[in-house]
Design a protein around this nucleic acid. Structure first.
Length: 492
RNA sequence: CGGGGUGUAGCGUAGCCCGGUUAUCGCGCCACGUUUGGGACGUGGAGGCCGCAGGUUCGAAUCCUGCCACCCCGACCA
């Protein structure tokens, strides 16, 4: 394995794959399309989980867990949802293996052990959850029902990529039931907004909140809200979605309640989710040719201390200083690691921590001991400064905050400079191919036009931004009148 | 599922066309020594059912047949 990462400009896709593996985030497994998330990658995911989980609970949601398997008859109950996912479902048909009489030492599926009813491995859990909710709701007093689950799901994708699209992935899926349409709509928008705030504040990734067009909508939803981010290669990435499901699932699973007037009514529903795909967004937004760049809020180690020494005595003194720093920073709730491995030299440690995106590196050597200083290097700008021990803790605090903010600002500047308004189809194609990013254009509102544009350019409508400016114009493809611009992009 | 390609040590590879000593090289790994302010160096060492099965041959990584797996380009997608 070569030491240097393939550069982004050489081959963006290769850069991404190498980075994921070399930074020790994840690797491909023996199962086609499924990844192993390694401890360092999982630590980042756990930080995301912790923060999201807190936000969900603050807004009144509770965690629960539902089965991995969905009986086929339940799965097919909501027709549009079933149809939308049917092509990518793994299905369990048997429950037992046996020794293969023809091949010693090998196993085969026991043909006698065929299931009466096939079990679908959940690609999403609406079916099993709504079948369960049926028993939980009788009265308006049981509502709203605000449930979230952290789970794995399986979608049998044809082509997979680490974190961005894997056959099995981890996510959270919220499922809520409400007495009124207005309440459910408010919930769907609220959760989309929580996602937006999380991604912007914690992941330092700017997003556009919007709604999906009919063809991009979740199968079984009446409206899909989303947050869309822009990657460094100019492609858009859907970072989260929140669906207003209307009464579709309530009708399919017969979930009725008695309202205040004593009349039976179907409940109104939402579902919303973000997945390990966020890891992909994180990587592709901030990282550079030296490796991963992590915002301090998500870094498993926010600061790493590297000793530089010749003698054992030096190391002892450095260790003493390092331990003081460790204690002081931990008091500030910062995560710090003292990398005192004797098996690697400083240069190798520097390179590794850069590759893994540690926001700040503190180096302490003999010169520093003599001067009561340390050297601080920031990962995002790759700049170094020498700081006196007396000022160190405040300086670290300030730098960590600055890194968090400047990563966001940098990404925002890039994103905003890659939203191009166009009024003709020629300009549309030029913007898309020469510059990339979002292209803001008028569209006649039909699925046919959307499909045609996709066929001609590979670009899809990522979203209609919330609170979109209303302005009259003409569809770039058909010339038909339009009342607002929508955002197109090539997407992951 | 259509089109193209590749399987040789943990990883990346040479050799294959044109069969012939002990299968090449780099990274990584192990031991010892010297090193340590940006991926150290030297010496020594370990590691291979050459994807699997069959065939041709005195002899197969190399030729033939079948199978399997993976990758790339399409169609599908959080």
């Amino acid at each position: 394995m070569s030491k240097k990462l393939t550069s982004r400009s050489t081959d963006y896709s290769k850069w991404y794959n190498e980075l994921v593996v070399k930074a020790d985030l994840a690797e491909n497994s023996a199962v086609r399309g499924c990844m192993v998330i390694k401890p360092y990658g999982y630590a980042i995911w756990e930080k995301m989980q912790a923060e999201l989980d807190k936000k969900f609970k603050e807004t009144g949601h509770q965690n629960a867990y539902f089965p991995l398997f969905v009986p086929k008859s339940l799965f097919e109950a909501e027709e549009k949802n079933a149809e939308g996912f049917a092509k990518e479902c793994a299905v369990v048909t048997h429950y037992r293996l046996q020794n293969d009489p023809n091949k010693p030492g090998k196993l085969r599926v026991d043909p006698e052990a065929k299931l009466e009813e096939e079990l679908v491995v959940r690609p999403t859990s609406e079916a099993i959850i709504w079948n369960t909710f049926k028993g939980w709701v009788q009265s308006y007093r049981d509502l709203p029902l605000l449930i979230n689950q952290w789970a794995n799901v399986v979608r049998w994708e044809m082509r997979t990529r680490l974190f961005l699209r894997t056959a099995e992935f981890l996510w959270q899926e919220g499922h809520t039931a409400h007495a009124t349409k207005a309440e459910a709509l408010t919930e769907a928008k609220l959760m989309n907004n929580i996602y937006a705030n999380f991604v912007q504040d914690f992941m330092a990734i700017p997003v556009i909140e919007g709604v999906k067009t009919e063809s991009e909508r979740f199968a079984g939803a009446d409206e899909t809200y989303c947050i869309e981010a822009l990657m460094q290669d100019g492609k858009a990435l859907q970072a989260g979605t929140s669906h207003f499901l209307g009464q579709n699932f309530a009708e399919a699973f017969d979930v009725k309640f008695a309202n205040k007037e004593g009349k039976q009514d179907y409940v109104w529903a939402t579902s919303w989710g973000v997945s390990t795909r966020l890891m992909g967004a994180l990587i592709m937004t901030h990282s550079d040719d030296y490796g991963l760049v992590l915002p301090p809020s998500l870094a498993p180690n926010q600061v790493v201390i590297v000793p530089i020494y010749k003698s054992e005595e030096d190391l002892e003194q450095i260790t003493e200083v390092a331990n003081t720093i460790l204690i002081d920073l931990r008091k500030k709730n910062r995560t710090v690691k003292f990398d005192n491995r004797t098996t690697h030299r400083p240069g190798a440690k520097f390179a590794q921590h850069e590759l893994q995106g540690v926001p700040l590196r503190i180096a302490i050597g003999p010169k520093d001991l003599a001067n009561q200083t340390v050297e601080i290097a920031r990962r995002d700008t790759l700049t170094k400064e020498t700081v006196h021990l007396n000022d160190l803790i405040n300086r670290v605090e300030a730098l960590l905050e600055d890194i968090q903010q400047s990563l966001y600002n940098k990404a925002l500047t890039y994103r905003d400079s890659h939203i191009t308004e166009v009024d003709t189809f020629e300009a549309f194609k030029t913007a898309l191919n020469d510059k990339g990013g979002f292209v803001s254009a008028h569209w006649d509102g039909t699925t046919e036009t959307e499909d045609k544009i996709k066929e001609l350019t590979k670009a899809t409508i990522r979203c209609i931004p919330l609170e979109n400016k209303q302005e009259t114009g003409n569809c770039i493809l058909t010339g038909k009148p339009s009342k607002e611009r929508v955002l197109f992009a090539k997407a992951y």
